[in-house]
Design a protein around this nucleic acid. Structure first.
Length: 466
RNA sequence: GGCGCGGUAGCCAAGUGGUAAGGCAGAGGUCUGCAAAACCUUUAUCCGCGGGUUCGAUUCCCGCCCGCGCCUCCA
């Protein structure tokens, strides 16, 4: 079965291949840098990381562009409250964003672009829309006239036909001709950051930055545009309107939206006290890999119920994976190659790949890997897993980790050096030989205090950092 | 109200028109100086509820109940 993704536009799972056959042009809506990323943001970004990695696994080149929204109402407000220029305020959170996403091992997009660096592109795009007769000005602001774009609503599958224009006009927004119209350019307000442009003094509306930057770097038709489900309407709907009304071409082939994350079955919100940033979780002592695993383990189109129980489960599951890898690498195996095991490995890889090809079904992919681990652990116990099978199993793990990326422990702390650990392991082996178990246990305890776990096996003692 | 997603074991969660993956937790066992790791057995006669289609439905259709999201700037 070929690679296929659910497309919000068609509401169907469709076969995917990049337009030009080799390079996938992806645009994802990045963070608004007014605060630290929370785990809901991270869920979306993690699913996009899985997407990236899977496209690469399937041999495609990537041109992935992500924007940084570094000007919007909240930023202006918060920066003012902090008494800082917006650039200074956003720089701090932009840096924090990359620190945090790096900790959960998100690959960097090929290109990251900031809204404030692309004001000219936005102004040009708005100008083009003006030439096409899609805009109007009111009180110094420029609006997009939805009536000029009949396809409006095709992404969110909203039918505005029966809705009377103006019926839902918000009393605060009488400056618009139609309630659905949205702002492209906001007139300057006293004391707010503004740009001097042919459109007048002001700042861009929210939606225009994505259209402008996406088309600037990826062309008029993108392969994939992704974001959280909440962006379907109005953000992405408006992006389509702006882009297609300007170029007359389809803006995006595949729209992919990540479902939201819940916390203990409830909406995550500050008022409920269940709002967590990544930093909150790390401070509580959870490993970033566990966060990554948990966020990646539920397929992106399903709401993910985040619980601390789940986070601990994730950490234990990672332990199982790492134990298995350690066992594979350290076990002395009988010579030879088992055809049965080889076939089992091939099958596991096929299942793993089929699962991810099927709209990134990470849960099923994990199932395939764990099932394989249990089977081969049994074979290892029974002596049927032979030296010749080791490479295949390690290769499978490597393939798995090229997507999930949880096998390597976070930071190797500055504790004991390998040589020191090995010397102590050797000393303990001698103590055990002389049945000096007190000394042996003493060494094990001492190492455990340093985060090193010892495991005695038939072939001797192996160790790992916890 | 409109549009959309979902309701599967203690928790998380996959899945199929033919009789329920996987992870975590629990119980018992094997192994072990101890411990860990690992394995074995066990934990849903049943997939929100009620109808219908079918030889057969958790999987398709209809209705209902419940949770969640969006409906103008929230990933």
């Amino acid at each position: 079965m070929p690679l296929r993704f659910y497309n919000t536009l068609s509401q169907k799972v469709e076969e995917f291949a990049p337009l030009d056959g080799h390079t996938v042009r992806v645009y994802t809506c990045g963070p608004t840098v007014w605060n630290f990323v929370h785990i809901g943001n991270l869920r979306t970004f993690t699913s996009q990381d899985i997407l990236r990695r899977w496209l690469q696994y399937r041999g495609y080149k990537l041109m992935h562009v992500m924007n940084i929204t570094d000007v919007d109402d909240r930023i202006i407000q918060q920066a003012a409250a902090a008494g800082q220029p917006i650039g200074e305020y956003t720089a701090r959170f932009t840096q924090a964003f990359f620190e945090d996403t790096g900790k959960v091992r998100l690959q960097q997009p090929e290109l990251v672009c900031k809204a404030t660096d692309h004001i000219d592109d936005m102004v040009r795009l708005i100008g083009q829309l003006g030439e096409n007769g899609c805009t109007y000005e009111s009180d110094g602001s420029v609006y997009f006239r939805i009536a000029k774009f009949p396809a409006y609503g095709k992404l969110s599958h909203t039918h505005f036909a029966g809705m009377k224009a103006g019926a839902r006009v918000d009393s605060d927004r009488y400056d618009k001709d139609d309630a659905r119209d949205f702002v492209l350019w906001k007139a300057k307000k006293e004391g707010e950051h503004y740009w001097d442009t042919p459109l007048g003094q002001g700042r861009p509306g929210w939606h225009i930055e994505c259209s402008a930057m996406a088309m600037r770097y990826l062309g008029e038709t993108l392969d994939i545009h992704a974001g959280g489900v909440d962006l379907v309407f109005p953000h992405h709907e408006n992006e389509i309107a702006q882009s297609e009304a300007s170029t007359g071409k389809p803006f995006v082939r595949f729209w992919m939206h990540t479902e939201h994350l819940m916390v203990e079955s409830q909406t995550m919100s500050k008022s409920l006290g269940n709002f967590y940033t990544l930093r909150d979780l790390l401070e509580k002592g959870y490993a970033p890999e566990a966060v990554r695993y948990l966020l990646a383990s539920v397929p992106y189109r399903k709401q993910l119920n985040f619980t601390f129980d789940g986070l601990r489960s994730a950490a234990t599951a990672i332990e199982r994976l790492r134990n298995y890898e350690l066992r594979l690498k350290t076990s002395k195996l009988p010579e030879g190659m088992s055809a049965g095991i080889q076939e089992r490995t091939r099958k596991a890889q096929a299942q793993f790949e089929a699962a991810l090809d099927d709209d990134l079904n990470t849960a099923e992919a994990l199932g395939a890997v764990f099932e394989y681990i249990r089977d081969t652990n049994t074979a290892l116990d029974g002596g049927e897993f032979l030296a010749g099978n080791r490479e295949g199993a390690l290769d499978l793990l490597e393939r798995f980790d090229s997507i999930f990326d949880v096998l390597r422990p976070a930071v190797s702390e500055h504790g004991l050096q390998d040589g020191e650990i090995e010397a102590l392991v050797e000393e303990r082996a001698q103590a055990k030989k002389t049945r000096n178990f007190a000394r042996a246990d003493d060494i094990r305890r001492k190492l455990l205090d340093q985060g090193v776990v010892l495991e005695d096996t038939r072939e001797g003692t192996r160790w790992k950092r916890k």
